[in-house]
Amino acid sequence: MEVVDPQQLGMFTEGELMSVGMDTFIHRIDSTEVIYQPRRKRAKLIGKYLMGDLLGEGSYGKVKEVLDSETLCRRAVKILKKKKLRRIPNGEANVKKEIQLLRRLRHKNVIQLVDVLYNEEKQKMYMVMEYCVCGMQEMLDSVPEKRFPVCQAHGYFCQLIDGLEYLHSQGIVHKDIKPGNLLLTTGGTLKISDLGVAEALHPFAADDTCRTSQGSPAFQPPEIANGLDTFSGFKVDIWSAGVTLYNITTGLYPFEGDNIYKLFENIGKGSYAIPGDCGPPLSDLLKGMLEYEPAKRFSIRQIRQHSWFRKKHPPAEAPVPIPPSPDTKDRWRSMTVVPYLEDLHGADEDEDLFDIEDDIIYTQDFTVPGQVPEEEASHNGQRRGLPKAVCMNGTEAAQLSTKSRAEGRAPNPARKACSASSKIRRLSACKQQ
């Protein structure tokens, strides 16, 4: 084909351009004929944790799935940006308080904090938690009735009371019990989460009196709706648990309003109706937990002794299953770290194939690490110290990083047969305790 000078094309009309061969290198194709290559998922490591896909996002930050490269346990990490926390009232204080509380709590029905990582340079905090497959609110939203069968609701409620009793025994008032803060594992274990607005009572406090509340409006008791200066913290949790039980068994809320002012007005009056299909035992329990006067409201001991709580409820309806993943529609909620794991395991070791967030990740503290002497050669063979940054567990980050890069360049065919977990650990520049 004859090559045409581009400067001469402006002298031709459209018809003349076609005659000189423009149609031979300008093609129009339908979008259905285009085959897009999927974007390669680059592996990203935060300390010893391999990052997966997004699980959810809230006002405080994002939650992603991660894999512990040492234990191969599935975890969830809450990623918090200090810049964003400053824009939220009491944001930083709530996060630090939640970390302090979770560090000393150990119960099967309370979410466990596994690790805390802090990135000084990017001003990011990573709260590594045990993995929960789904939230209770997500399960309720997945069915038209917006409720659980009585047998399933009873099982979840009993676990909620177990976890709540443990928190109260530790002198902690949750203040925000609701389905949105109750998570579930694949085995059906309920976990109380989000202790950001919780309050730890003084060890020598005479009672459970509280003065502040930041919980969700629909789950607040009349004493808070009416603006009382002080109130019983434990009875606030009992009320919120009662509203939660009402919601998961009926699909409704005892109090509603077009806006928060109308909602608080209705809560302050204390008038509500219980659907007739709840039955006398459940209705009596709800009335005891939603008692207007805090002094007359049920205690956890009274809830445990109630006939509806103690009764064994046979399954009359099919239980609400864990819904498919909202993004991938995966009904099994498979591990989202698998594509990243395959990338590390299947590809040659190259620095361009993975990302390490930083050479140094500070753990379990908000301060910069200490310094240790770096050896410097002298005339008599002895070495003197220069400062060298280290990880919180004493690992020399720069030395590990250099060693990792040197190993990656060394030709050794046997290394390709290593397991995925050992490869992740070798790529991680800074081991965590």
Rank of each mutant, 00 (worst) to 15 (best):
K312M: 12
K423W: 12
P275A: 03
Q371V: 12
R297C: 00
K312P: 11
S325M: 01
S240E: 13
F354G: 07
K82E: 10
A218T: 04
A347L: 12
H345A: 14
L72N: 01
Q305D: 10
P254S: 03
D330C: 10
G394N: 05
L72T: 12
F255P: 02
E33S: 04
D115L: 08
G180I: 11
S59I: 10
K122H: 15
C278M: 11
A429K: 12
Y166I: 08
P373T: 07
Q7C: 13
K269T: 12
V66I: 02
A198H: 13
V34I: 07
F354I: 10
L101I: 06
F354C: 03
R425G: 14
H107T: 06
L72W: 07
A316L: 05
W239V: 00
G242F: 00
E223S: 02
P144L: 03
D327C: 09
V77T: 14
G251I: 02
K97T: 10
L67Y: 01
D359A: 11
N380I: 06
L54R: 04
R103K: 08
F231W: 02
R40S: 05
R331V: 07
D68S: 09
P324C: 10
Q123P: 02
N94I: 07
Q302V: 08
Q399N: 11
S334N: 14
E120I: 13
T336C: 09
V66N: 02
P321H: 08
V243A: 06
S240N: 07
V236W: 06
D348L: 10
F298A: 13
Q7W: 07
I303F: 02
G180S: 07
G346R: 14
D258L: 02
D23H: 09
K269C: 07
N247Y: 10
N181K: 00
P339Q: 13
S422G: 12
G251R: 02
E145N: 12
Q220M: 07
K124W: 01
S421F: 07
L113R: 03
Q382P: 10
L201T: 08
P280E: 15
Q214V: 05
D229T: 15
V4P: 06
T363D: 12
I99Q: 02
Y261T: 06
D207P: 06
R147Y: 12
S271Q: 07
F354A: 13
R75S: 03
I360F: 04
T185Y: 05
S307F: 11
M139N: 05
G15C: 07
V338Q: 13
E375H: 09
F255T: 05
L85C: 07
I161R: 00
G233L: 14
L228R: 15
L140E: 00
A205S: 08
H174Y: 07
P38Y: 01
V372W: 07
Y126F: 03
I35W: 15
Y118T: 15
I88F: 04
L45V: 05
L282T: 02
F231E: 09
Q364P: 11
K96Q: 03
E349V: 08
W239P: 00
T209Q: 13
A410Y: 11
L54S: 08
H154S: 02
C134P: 15
L286W: 08
P411M: 14
L72D: 13
K269H: 12
R310F: 10
L117W: 09
D176L: 00
D53C: 07
A410F: 11
L164V: 04
S428E: 15
I300P: 11
C391M: 15
L183V: 08
Q37T: 15
L55V: 03
I424S: 11
K62G: 09
A153W: 00
A153P: 00
G233N: 08
V143N: 15
